[in-house]
Design a protein around this nucleic acid. Sequence first.
DNA 1: GTATATTACGAAAACGGTTTCGTGTTGATA
DNA 2: TATCAACACGAAACCGTTTTCGTAATATAC
Lengths: 342, 342
Amino acid sequence: MPNLKSKITLKDIARELEVSISTVSKALKNSEEISRDTKEKIQAFARLYNYKPNNIAISLKNKRTKNIGVVIPDIVHHFFTTVIRGIEKYANAKGYNVIVCLSEESFDKEVINMEMLANGSIDGFIMSLSSETQAKGDYNHLREVTEQGIPVVLFDRITNEVECDKVVIDDQLGGYLATKKLVGQGKKKIALITTDDYLSVSKARTEGYKKALLESNLPVDESRILKLPTMDMDENKIRKFFNSQEIDAVMCVNEIFAVFSMRVALEQGFKIPEEISFIGFTNGLLSKYANPSLTVVAQHGERMGEISAQMLIDKVESENEEETFQTKILEPTLVVRDSTIN
Amino acid sequence: MPNLKSKITLKDIARELEVSISTVSKALKNSEEISRDTKEKIQAFARLYNYKPNNIAISLKNKRTKNIGVVIPDIVHHFFTTVIRGIEKYANAKGYNVIVCLSEESFDKEVINMEMLANGSIDGFIMSLSSETQAKGDYNHLREVTEQGIPVVLFDRITNEVECDKVVIDDQLGGYLATKKLVGQGKKKIALITTDDYLSVSKARTEGYKKALLESNLPVDESRILKLPTMDMDENKIRKFFNSQEIDAVMCVNEIFAVFSMRVALEQGFKIPEEISFIGFTNGLLSKYANPSLTVVAQHGERMGEISAQMLIDKVESENEEETFQTKILEPTLVVRDSTIN
DNA sequence: GTATATTACGAAAACGGTTTCGTGTTGATA
DNA sequence: TATCAACACGAAACCGTTTTCGTAATATAC
């Protein structure tokens, strides 16, 4: 550790000015208890030596850290970064810092991260479940935390098995809107590219997709549903999927699937959007700069982050004991670009 | 605040087991001073009631928070997210948490964030300067922090005016390599799309570009250099730029410029890469999924993050007083894709 | 002149740990 | 049996604040 011309403390000021620590503390808070003269002297001295109270000591005393723990599966996905930005924005305005932990889609990491933070480092959690956690269905780490009285806000990838505040977009509606949009353009053979079912969001989007088809009197054909792993998508699988089916539109549960499969379609000679249309989820850079640009269901990540932070901080700062939890559902919106007609 | 079945403390254990706090503390650390019997009793009790030491108290005592402050201009850019991931990975393995603050390219926010964290919340900073800070050239907030003995590691967007550890890629070499690659493909009229000069990285990349041209006996034509604002790129400007010049290759200082201008070129009927080649910086999702996929200079963000974290933690945990700073320069590498010939 | 209020400050506990040092008890040694 | 080391534990200081409560000194009231 380098040479610390370390920070000045209350004690230092007290010693230097020959008053007590309590007097210094009160003077710096402009307490009525202290005389004008003394206050001015102390404040001037503090300013001169650039006194700043030690956050850790204050945290210990108040049992409030003014830190928020954010645990998310991945940070490289555009959606999550926008959520973080939203959280940061609101939290910062309220004087809170954001501690970011990545579960990397691993259950164990999620647990470890939470334990690490739950021992006094943070006032509350904002989190989105890892896929492994959702697959496993084990939420004891969340319950332990909430039972300790640490507020938790779950966003996007949530579970009903934990009682806490939640923020989601209506993913089913998102899937529904997207599919309806395709139907409205005269598409009849609408495929779905999704992940495994255990991801709550994919499941809901799939439901919306099916609902829209049924409502439009179109058959739900399971062979038109392709499940892909999140990492390392297999180009051939998609190629075969496109070949074996007569497909005139595809809804994908994320940006990457959409952009990736669009390229495969282009390579196979399909015209987008005339012969085959595409809609994805997440209004990120990829969609915007893809070629053709991608029509998507926007998830409003930043708004989601702000709301999550607001719900959490409200709870953290609220006095009342009664536990009432709410689930906020945001409406997804369609951002129409060139991968769909007009 | 919800009902806290709040955490058990040393004091609680001591009271319950009728021993002193010191004994409990030592027993839980498996100290030789305490008898087997007592240790077992205490440890069993602690396990039963799931005792976890309070991080804040430990921080106050040790004057070590095990938190790292990361201040970056933006989190939605792929490069920065990969750096964060690298930092997180290394820091977590070492038992550190990562507090992320966004300056949003604003000098003031950068200063506020640093002040907020510098009062005991963190053991050190890892940061990349906001564009406003670089434009302004005011680094007093950094100096104040280092003078307090708080270690700082600057990465990517750095300055020579502050003495601290630094991690960068050789941006000049990156620009050089990219340009040479284009030259090697027989391109003679190589354009550059960049930002304003105050961004240290853009400047260096431009230098590399010029160096490569000169070395190849190609003229450096300033009219072939287009400066674009980071946000809201103007399509028409690019179109005019392409029209007014006879350009057979473009190097862009980031992914977005590259992908965006590629689309403009395609719309104008250019064939990529035969008639006009493109190279960008940052090996992100955009480059990978662009159409055509984009050849880029990879910045190895994750590695950069790991190294930054390592340098910082080394300094934080080092005992010796002598201040020696190093600058680590990573080599950029070319990732060749379809926007350049073969 | 005495009783009471007010002013201005300090002592000390508290937050939850760690760590140094002191000490009563035991057992071994001479 | 006196001496001493080893053992096992507790008291207390400390980290840097906040806050309650007590109290001397002064001012006010009667």
